[in-house]
């Protein structure tokens, strides 16, 4: 049996080193030659911490001493101990005490885990690439959502988003017994602005009206560009007419009669009509029709005043 053991150790695909209690190398198997690039003849009789200099540290010497005294195995991981045997291989090191006829030796097993490190590194790269792709997709989703639900020129909600919120807010108002306000806003004489100052300036004026409405309304109110120069504003959770009046007053205060755009002094005027669920209608279409009607009354009043 003893005669075949050296042959068996030579066949094992694991770096095997046997050292004495003085750290002198007494056995160095062929796989260890492959891992370290050092031939057995060159290292036998030398101290292991001189042949493998990363072991020339207090943690190794202390571990060996404890192992010689106590006999319990020691483990050093490839992750915490880089370049244990060479720069090309990552190895875990297990050390056990072997006692034969009162003579104590230490068996060092160098287990090659280089492939594990490579695979994990590849997986980390894939995860990183996927994570990057995922964030790109999320950004694109946001852009698509913006295109689908927001008006390209003014940045406020388009009709699709308005419809979505209108149904939601109407259902909440019905369930809670609260009011829902719907404001119809029209930019007076917008065609004249376009004809006088050009479409480019007209577009900028439209954007400023959208900003004015957004700044004057509450966080949960929905400002929507309904048509060319028409806006709708959904006002959920209105409890009294005063709640609406506070918003209308803010629009009035923010609305500058004259605005300067592209160096032109432009007269800006808005006509507004408001309808309320449940008094003015039971559906969004009825509320829009009613608010449109009141908006025309307001437009007529403004025209009369300016005559």
């Amino acid at each position: 049996m003893d005669s075949i053991l050296p042959g068996v150790l030579n066949c094992i695909n694991e770096g095997l080193v046997i050292i004495s209690v003085d750290l002198e190398i007494t056995y160095w198997n062929p796989f260890m030659e492959k891992l370290s690039g050092k031939k057995s003849e060159a290292v036998l009789g030398q101290n292991v911490d001189k042949v493998l200099p990363t072991l020339e540290r207090p943690f190794f010497h202390n571990a060996v001493q404890r192992l010689i005294n106590g006999g319990n195995p020691v483990f050093f991981s490839a992750a915490m101990h880089r370049n244990l045997v060479s720069q090309d291989h990552r190895v875990n090191l297990k050390i056990n005490r072997v006692t034969v006829e009162d003579k104590v030796s230490l068996l060092l097993e160098f287990i090659d885990v280089t492939n594990q490190f490579q695979r994990i590194s590849q997986l980390r790269d894939y995860v990183s690439q996927l994570s990057h792709l995922n964030s790109q997709l999320k950004q694109k989703e946001k852009v698509i959502e913006k295109l689908a639900y927001y008006d390209k020129l003014t940045g406020v909600a388009n009709r699709a988003l308005f419809d979505k919120f209108a149904d939601k807010y109407l259902n909440i108002a019905k369930a809670r017994g609260t009011m829902l306000g719907l404001m119809f806003v029209d930019v007076n004489e917008f065609k004249l602005i376009n004809d006088t100052y050009g479409h480019n300036t007209g577009d900028k004026v439209m954007t400023r009206v959208a900003s004015l409405l957004t700044e004057s309304t509450r966080k949960n109110d929905i400002v929507c560009r309904y048509g060319g120069d028409e806006f709708l504003v959904l006002l959920p959770d209105i409890r009294t007419f005063r709640d609406y009046q506070a918003i209308a007053d803010r629009i009035e205060a923010n609305k500058k009669r004259h605005i300067v755009q592209d160096g032109y002094d432009i007269w800006l005027s808005l006509s507004m009509g408001i309808s309320f669920f449940p008094d003015d209608g039971q559906t969004i279409d009825e509320l829009i029709a009613k608010a449109d009607e009141f908006m025309y009354v307001n437009k007529h009043e403004i025209r009369q005043k300016n005559l």
């Binding site: 404890r66 106590g70 020691v74 875990n92 997986l123």
Partner: peptide
């Protein structure tokens, strides 16, 4: 956790447990 993580904790566990039981 991957094998590298497990081996790292195995080493730390070995050191801490060795110290206490030792």
């Amino acid at each position: 956790f991957n094998d590298i993580d497990f081996d790292t904790i195995k080493e730390i566990g070995n050191i801490v447990i060795n110290s206490i039981i030792g």
